[in-house]
Design a protein around this nucleic acid. Sequence first.
DNA 1: AATTCTCTGTGCGAAGGCGTACATAGGAGG
DNA 2: CCTCCTATGTACGCCTTCGCACAGAGAATT
Lengths: 238, 238
Amino acid sequence: MPSIQSPQRNQLLAGLSRQEADRIYPHLKLVSLPLGKVLYEPGDPQGSVYFPTDCIVSLLYVLEDGASAEIAVVGNEGLIGISLFMGGETTPSRAVVQSAGHAYRLLGPLLKEEFYRSGDMQLLLLRYTQSLITQMAQTAVCNRHHSVDQQLCRWLLLSLDRLEGNVLSMTQELIANMLGVRREGVTEAAGRLQKLGVIRYSRGRIAVLKREKLEALCCECYAVVKKETDRLRTFSSL
Amino acid sequence: MPSIQSPQRNQLLAGLSRQEADRIYPHLKLVSLPLGKVLYEPGDPQGSVYFPTDCIVSLLYVLEDGASAEIAVVGNEGLIGISLFMGGETTPSRAVVQSAGHAYRLLGPLLKEEFYRSGDMQLLLLRYTQSLITQMAQTAVCNRHHSVDQQLCRWLLLSLDRLEGNVLSMTQELIANMLGVRREGVTEAAGRLQKLGVIRYSRGRIAVLKREKLEALCCECYAVVKKETDRLRTFSSL
DNA sequence: AATTCTCTGTGCGAAGGCGTACATAGGAGG
DNA sequence: CCTCCTATGTACGCCTTCGCACAGAGAATT
């Protein structure tokens, strides 16, 4: 669990040129992010960005009546705080740590300075932002058309891709908040998956036993996002 | 209806500096966009971008089984084809003209060249992209939590903001495709709105009579997006 | 060992949306 | 005028999800 940390464990930081890395790495600060930690609230000026290494962060939207829904999920393939370089400085959503771990923090001004050098960093960040857009779009469609069962599968797979091992630490209550459904709905869907032998869980520990089956039960949304994310990550820089 | 066209009618083009406008405007080509025209299909290399002046374009996602859902809507406040400067070149969604009108087309390489000069154009485009992200996120949440009635209100308001006058040319069938619901659901919701005297429609013509009431009936999603879009548009460029 | 708290399972009725089928109504064209 | 086509209105049963209530079961605390 307390594996060795290095900026290279974040795919964006790992993708920088030698020169950029030399400029940026000295300013990175490793931070430990516990479950539930809020990186920013809606409207907060985002002073820093976070590059996850082994944690997962949810971008969550909370409605006036308290209902919530996950917009997107970010792991070591991305960063938290895109509104800094996108120019808006804030966003209407909230960023919450969904799986504890670590991230490298970089102060906003330093990120912006590097971004506006228009080098690899800019290309990487913009392309990552596009993959985030894809994920959000797919979430919208999935919310509209697919069942809780399917969405649970999608969510498990997205989380699994961002963790080592096959175990998620997550109560059904929290998953329900992410998906924006009732806790009981998650209980029932998870019960069905367990009956099929796809997962096994108890009190906040979910072990995925048959990943292939999970993918088969899932709607197309997971595959679409995964494929597009991979494409954008490995896209040759022109 | 056939009002005078000018690049200035698009808010992004209007926001360029004198110097940038001098470089870009000569390369703009005015095109007429009929209802239903597809600007790009999922995966299409996007050779050009479109700056709408008096048309509305929907970003639509179509599932394998044919079901669809609107991700976002673009009028003269934005442009179609962000994946060009975001670096992905393609997206998994489709862009369809939802309300006929005009747009200025700009070839991809020219847009990229201007974008990578890191001037006003870049700031404007990135900030617009962030407002698009906000809209997509809100759509996801709205799909999850709000009724068809509320979503219809949201959709009408979003469209109204991007048109002159108070009349939409749109069959209930098309609206249903955008919202990703049944046509009958739209019929019923629209019937209720009509009974309240908020709208009046017949055979593809929807007249909004009481906009304030429409806003009152709508979920918070419209206001959130509107406010954020305005904020990002008028944000001083640092 | 007893108690308390958290997490999970289950069982209702209610509501919204879906799929289907069919009925009406306004326009266009012969 | 009549016909055809498209757009809209209505009805009905079904299914999913919701909201609520409560029961068990595991873990932590005392």
